[in-house]
Nucleic acid binder design. Sequence first.
DNA 1: CAAATACTTAACCACTTGGTTTATTTTTTG
DNA 2: CAAAAAATAAACCAAGTGGTTAAGTATTTG
Lengths: 109, 109
Amino acid sequence: MNAVPGAPLDRVFHAISDPTRRSVLARLSGGEQALGVLAAPHDMSLPAFSKHIRVLEQAGLVHTVKRGRTHYCSLNAEPMKAASEWLAYYRKFWESRLDSLDTFLKENP
Amino acid sequence: MNAVPGAPLDRVFHAISDPTRRSVLARLSGGEQALGVLAAPHDMSLPAFSKHIRVLEQAGLVHTVKRGRTHYCSLNAEPMKAASEWLAYYRKFWESRLDSLDTFLKENP
DNA sequence: CAAATACTTAACCACTTGGTTTATTTTTTG
DNA sequence: CAAAAAATAAACCAAGTGGTTAAGTATTTG
């Protein structure tokens, strides 16, 4: 069924479950950035930061091109679409108050 | 922007990055379920399955109550709202074609 | 009360994750 | 060309994840 270990949705949700990586995506939404510039504000070594970039790349959220000795990263939000659609299915539960809190309130008037 | 330290969002995105856990949420969207019933279709031991439930509980996505010897799980979609809103920020990039593919196409006519 | 039921807890294991440091590679610059 | 810069690769480590089996705890039922 859905037991494929490396499913795209798995990789996207995993990628965005880390604050460092979410921060990178936010900064990339302002446009392409050199990897070193992206890494600067994060308190970790460059190899550690590069691993985060690799996770984002493998989720398809970041594309990196090399020009000269500099690697430029850019956002590719397309894989977020499926993630957003997966979440959208549950919107009715938090909007229409059909979740467990509402159930509780209905059953305990 | 992302001023709040990401902990809750971290836990929600991590929780839904696993296909077993997404499957559980989907089935809970049909209403409360006994843990044992929920576990049945998954090819793993009950302790392993219970750990998945605990991850969902810690993300605030599932609430469990014990009635007699049975533990009943229900969906609480509310924490998904923030997750959905985080993703919504990027909607313009996949809808308005402002992502890296589009940039590439614009720069390489 | 004794046995079955529905779980949890505990102990363990293999693998992954997120970080480190050190060394290399590639490219630019003095 | 030699040194600096940008980043990767490799080797390593601690902690977390996802699974197991075995044992324990409530609770219901025969």
